[in-house]
Structures are given as C-alpha cells and as structure tokens.
Design a protein around this nucleic acid. Structure first.
Lengths: 201, 201
DNA sequence: CGGAAAATGGACTGTCAAGTCCAGAAATAG
DNA sequence: CTATTTCTGGACTTGACAGTCCATTTTCCG
C-alpha cells in the first residue's frame, strides 16, 4: 500500500462509508461495486486502488467499520455499569439502538455473505464479541465490588449469557421487527444478576 | 402445479434434500443450481419443472425444510418439559444438536441470502419462532401447574427470553465455534425460572 | 518550478450462473 | 393399447458483475 494523500484518504473513506450505507439500505446481496461507485461518485480504478482485494476486501472493511459502531453506540453507558439504574440505562440504550436500526444487522449480513472461510471474517466478529463481553464482565465485577452482586457469580460466564441474550434478541428482531424478545431476554439477564440466580457451574 | 407422479415426487424431494445438504457443506453463496444438479443427477429442466420460481423458490423450500428439522430435532424432550430433570434433558439436547452441527446455521444462512424482502422468507422464520416459543411456554405453564414455577411469571415472556438465549448462543457459536455462550445463556434462563427471578413487567 | 508518485476516468474483457426451450422418453388413465 | 400428461436431457441465450488496463490529471515535496 503506497502512502495515502489527504485526498486519497478521503476518497477511501467515502467509498467505505458509501458501501456501508448502501448495504444497510439494500442488503449485501443487492449491493454491487457499481452501486457503490455511483453513490460515491468514484470509479472502478479508485475502488481497486484502495481495496486491491476487490469486493471481498471492501466487505471486510465494512464489517470492521460496523463492528466498531456497535460498541461506540453503547457508550458511555457501557463503561459505567456501576449501579442498577446505570444497568437499566444501558439496557435502554441497547434496545433503542436496535429499535432505531429497524430489524437489520449489517454486521451479521456482511459476515454471513463473506462465509466463514475468510480468515479475517471470524476475527472481526470474535474480536467484537470479546470486547463486548469483557466490558459487560467489568460491570459485573464492579457490582460485586460494591456488594450488589453475589461474589459467587462468575463475571465472564454471566457476561457471556447476557451477550447471548442481546444477540438472540436482535436476531429475532430481524425477522419479527419487534424488540420484545430482546427486551425480555435482557430484563431476564439483569434480573438474574440482581437475584444472584446465576448458576456457577 | 400439475399433479405429481410418484417418480416426480421422488425427484423433487431428491433435489430439495440435495440442495439442503450442499448448502450445509458449502454455504449458500457457494451453491449454484448446477452444483445441485450434479449432486442429485438431475437436469436444469427438472429443477425448473418442480421449482418454477427457480433459485429463489428452491432456497425458500430449503428454508422450510430446515425450519422443520429444528423443531423435530428437539423432540421428544421439547414436548415433555414436566420436571426440572426434563428441562435439563432438553437443554442438553439443544446444546448437543448445535454442537454436532458445528457452528453452522443453514436456516440463518439461507434467510439472510434471500433478503428480508421476500414475502415467504419472513413467514418461515417467524413461524418457526412462534412454534418454538409456544412449545417452551407450554412447558412453563405446566411447571406452574405443579407449583414449581412462580405463577406470577408470564409464560410467554419467559419463553421469549429463553428463545433469545438459544438464538444468541447459536449465533455466537457460529463465529467462535464454541458452545459456551449457548450453555451459559440457557443455564441462566432455566435458573431464572427456578428462582422465580423473572421480571413480570 | 519540475519530476515522481499517487489519484482518477471509464472502456473493455472474461466468466459464471440463472433461466429458456424443445425434442424425446416414461408414465398414467380410460 | 393409445392418447394425454408428466418427466427428462442438455444445448443455448442472456445478463450481470467482478476485475483489468492504460491514458490522463492531480498532488506532493524538494
């Protein structure tokens, strides 16, 4: 990769965000390189200049882009799980985020289109999951520190369960359009923490 | 659709199952009609004879096929959630099923490739979710009947949460290859039921 | 400036896979 | 048995889209 000019970096970014937006609106399958070019007023040579790997590399970049958004969109609440009201605020933020997104998970769409074969694909998703789970686990530990959660609870396992609740809720929302499952699962997870009803097995 | 002869029905079934198998092995994107034909020793005209809508109709049929399997694979345990050991047996069955499937969800793959636009696609997934949730809710109600679960718990909401736990656990397994999230979430959900820690809100 | 490196435009190619078509074989009904 | 319907084989058409190439313009930096 040669050094990028300021203009070059801007173009690259424009292509990336244009692709992400188009995918959000029409889905991965219905997104061709020409669509992206038209939307971003760029040309084939530019796209392949900045993404030599072509479509696959672009899609992977979009996946990374979306993965970052997922975490960012939960800040600052995700960093401040220090009281039960704070947990509630975070829960609301998550629900609101996905409600607004309207039953569409660009990240899931992109990764499932890249196939698991790709070396980078898994890394993006697992990296996101690890970061996410780790942040939640920190919240659990903090609550244990202030005596609000039973010390017998395994923070990582609890965070894993909560993460699964969110993922499942969002997945179901993708087909039903409703956030009821997401809300029910998240509420259950948090209630479990409060009640210390977590199996430590 | 004209009436099918015995031979015709067999061919149709062969194509359908061949497509399903190929998709399981290689993914949707890497499955062409020619692949299916080669595997099932059939010809283009046969495929379009039995699936006039072409690729899309075939994919939808595969989705239905896989959706049915999901429920069937949980029997008989799913129908007999009448004691805590029975819940545990069901939990183990679910985990085992997805462990064996090895981080691959053909249904999710197919639907995400069909796009949400399709009229039938949503119906297949929402139908599956509704059936699944309804079966779980029946189990909850039965346990309430025998005094093992707090009557204040809303069976449908509890079932919704449990369903989300499973979906999320499987989704995460798709990228990590591990069933730890699935297990953690399911255990949490069942523990919640036992503890009556369900928010009734 | 002025030359090297980077950025851009867009025509062109090649491939691949979905879908069409028709002729002929097998099955079914009466 | 024979007429009608269903089933089958496979060649052919069509279109779309990823990726290539080179000529030209712009930017960078000493």
């Amino acid at each position: 990769m040669p050094t990028l000019t300021r203009k070059g970096a801007a173009t690259r970014q424009r292509i990336l965000e244009g692709a992400a937006t188009h995918i959000r609106e029409y889905g991965v399958a219905a997104t061709t390189l020409d669509d992206v070019l038209a939307r971003t007023t760029t040309s084939k040579s530019q796209l392949f200049h900045y993404f030599p790997g072509g479509r696959e590399e672009l899609l992977l970049a979009v996946a990374r882009f979306e993965a970052d958004r997922v975490i960012e969109d939960q800040r600052p609440q995700l960093d401040e799980l220090t009281s039960w009201p704070a947990w509630r605020a975070w829960r609301d933020k998550v629900v609101e985020r996905y409600r607004r997104q309207g039953g569409l998970c660009p990240l899931n769409a992109v990764t499932s289109h890249l196939g698991d074969g790709s070396p980078g694909t898994r890394a993006v998703v697992t990296g996101l999951m690890r970061r996410w789970q780790s942040e939640i686990a920190n919240g659990v530990r903090h609550m244990q520190g202030v005596g609000e959660i039973d010390p017998a609870v395994d923070p990582d396992r609890a965070a894993a369960a909560l993460l699964a609740c969110i993922q499942g809720g969002v997945l179901i929302q993708m087909s039903t359009g409703e956030t009821t499952h997401l809300e029910a699962a998240l509420d259950m997870g948090i209630a479990s923490l409060r009640a210390g009803a977590f199996p430590t097995t």
